[in-house]
Simulated scan of single mutants.
Amino acid sequence: MNPCGTSTQRVPQRWPLLERDEWTEREARHHERVDAMLEGHLHRRRHGIAHPVEDFLFTYYSHRPGQLRRWHPGVGVGLARGALPTGPGDSCYTEVPGGVALDVDRFLEKRGTTVAFVSSLLRAVNGRPAHLGCFGLHEWAMVYRLRPGEARHSQVPLRLGHEGTDRVVESHRVRCSHFDAYRFFTDEARPRNELRPTRDSQVNMDQPGCLHANMDLYKWAYKLAPAVPSELVADCFELARDVRELDMRASPYDLTEYGYTPVRIETREGKAEYTAAQRRFAERASGLRSRLLRVCELLGG
Rank of each mutant, 00 (worst) to 15 (best):
R70M: 09
R70D: 08
C296S: 05
R26H: 11
G259D: 03
V174P: 11
R183Y: 10
A80L: 09
G66A: 11
E25Q: 14
R44Y: 05
P262D: 04
A272Y: 10
T94Y: 00
R167C: 15
V53L: 14
N2G: 10
W15S: 10
H41I: 06
Y222S: 07
A28V: 01
L79R: 02
V295D: 04
A181P: 11
V263K: 00
A189H: 00
A276M: 06
Q9L: 13
A116K: 08
V100H: 02
E238V: 11
L160E: 09
M142T: 06
T94R: 01
G133E: 10
G48E: 02
L160V: 06
D200P: 13
Q278P: 09
C210S: 12
G99K: 02
L298P: 11
T186Q: 11
T6W: 07
I265H: 05
H131M: 12
R10A: 05
V263T: 09
D242A: 14
G259R: 03
V243N: 00
Q9V: 14
E95N: 15
G78K: 02
L132M: 07
Y61D: 08
E139M: 05
A240C: 08
T267I: 06
S119M: 03
H47L: 07
C296L: 03
N126T: 13
Q207P: 12
A276I: 14
V75K: 00
R81Q: 10
V143N: 04
G127R: 13
F184T: 04
Y274V: 09
T165R: 06
W23Y: 03
G270H: 08
V233R: 13
C4R: 12
A116F: 06
V77I: 13
V263H: 02
H172R: 09
T256A: 02
V156T: 03
R196L: 06
P229C: 04
V75E: 00
A130P: 00
E150N: 12
Y260V: 04
G209C: 08
T275K: 10
G164M: 13
L57T: 01
P157Y: 07
L293A: 07
H212E: 09
R244D: 12
Y182I: 08
V143M: 08
L255M: 07
L79C: 04
R241E: 04
V169K: 01
D105N: 15
P88Q: 14
P262E: 05
R128Y: 12
M37Y: 12
S7K: 08
F179H: 02
A227F: 10
K271W: 11
A83D: 03
L246T: 04
Y218A: 01
